[in-house]
């Protein structure tokens, strides 16, 4: 049972603000970034890393490794799992499917004391592992998922492997709604329910956006929750940005079935000035230095006002 109270929710919301501001800061500094993903998902990552996922405590925030080379003969896999469960028995696993959210995860790791803030010096720098579109070697990431739709199949395989080995713990998979258009996603749902993977928890950021614009005119996937159910999953759909609702949703009984929680979120939650960019939210880039300066001013003002 997930038991959380208003106090916890307040803490989560505060962490979420911290995540959003960090991503905002990096977007201005880097002259562009996946900012609306921070708006829609900060509360989700904050809640997951602040108690919803069962993870071992990290005493001293960890530093990311430099790039260790692609896995191959003589070079074993290096993953960001040490920022999560570190592969320890009895803890939950975290599969981050849309790797474009990497910066949001890095910010969440810092805000929850799992990653050293100084680790962000390597962000988007040659030879580092803190990549813009992360991969399995990046902090907090356990598999390679930048090609959308692939995270869930790998998560399902891991969930099945854990069941076969009698390992406790759940496999939390974070998904964004756009990637759920892919055939592989539906194949994976089909297989996960068929094989009764009730240790699979899918958390879906339903911000309604994709690269080309809003999902409805690009490729509609509604009624999304009904589709989940028709594929044999238990599904709860909740309002986004409300951590207690997410904690409650995780208590939904789902014996023998995977559980999906769809969160209806906003791509400009907490940064309402982004609304003017509608319908394109996928990547915030600045068209001229003036615009970047205007964003910097907003950022400074927000920091000042706390």
């Amino acid at each position: 049972m997930y038991k959380f109270d208003k106090k916890w929710e307040k803490e989560v919301l505060s962490i979420a603000d911290g995540i959003r501001m960090r991503v905002f800061q990096f977007t201005v500094e880097q002259n562009g970034g996946y900012l609306s993903q921070a708006c829609s998902a900060s509360e989700i990552f904050a809640a997951m890393y602040h108690g919803l996922m069962k993870l071992p405590k990290i005493k001293t925030p960890l530093m990311p490794d430099p790039w260790q080379g692609a896995p191959g003969p003589g070079n074993p896999i290096h993953t960001g799992i040490k920022f999560n469960s570190d592969g320890k028995e009895g803890y939950d696993r975290f599969i981050m499917s849309p790797a474009q959210y990497a910066l949001v995860v890095y910010a969440a790791l810092i805000e929850t004391g799992r990653m050293d803030e100084a680790g962000m010096d390597a962000y988007n720098k040659d030879g580092g592992s803190v990549e813009m579109i992360g991969a399995e070697h990046s902090p907090g990431m356990e598999v390679t998922t930048g090609s959308l739709g692939q995270g869930i199949s790998q998560a399902a395989g891991i969930a099945m492997g854990m069941k076969l080995k009698g390992k406790k713990g759940k496999v939390f998979t974070f998904l964004s709604d756009g990637e759920c258009q892919s055939g592989e996603f539906w194949e994976a749902l089909q297989a996960s329910s068929f094989h009764h993977l009730d240790n699979m928890i899918m958390i879906v950021d339903r911000n309604g956006c994709q690269c080309d614009g809003l999902m409805k005119p690009v490729m509609n996937i509604e009624p999304f929750d009904e589709r989940f159910r028709s594929f044999g999953c238990e599904c709860v759909r909740i309002k986004g940005h409300k951590p207690l609702l997410l904690a409650e949703a995780l208590n939904t009984p789902h014996r023998g079935k995977p559980l999906a929680v769809i969160l209806d979120t906003s791509p400009y939650h907490g940064l309402s000035f982004l609304k003017e960019r509608a319908p394109k939210f996928h990547y915030v880039r600045f068209t001229d230095p003036k615009q970047r300066e205007a964003y910097r001013k907003i950022y400074d003002k927000m920091v000042k006002e706390g």
Partner: peptide, 18 residues
């Protein structure tokens, strides 16, 4: 099932679990 993309990703997940 007739769903090879998932099958290959699923196999990758199983391989990660040993």
């Amino acid at each position: 099932g007739i769903a090879e993309q998932n099958m290959l990703g699923f196999a990758g997940g199983l391989a990660r679990e040993g």
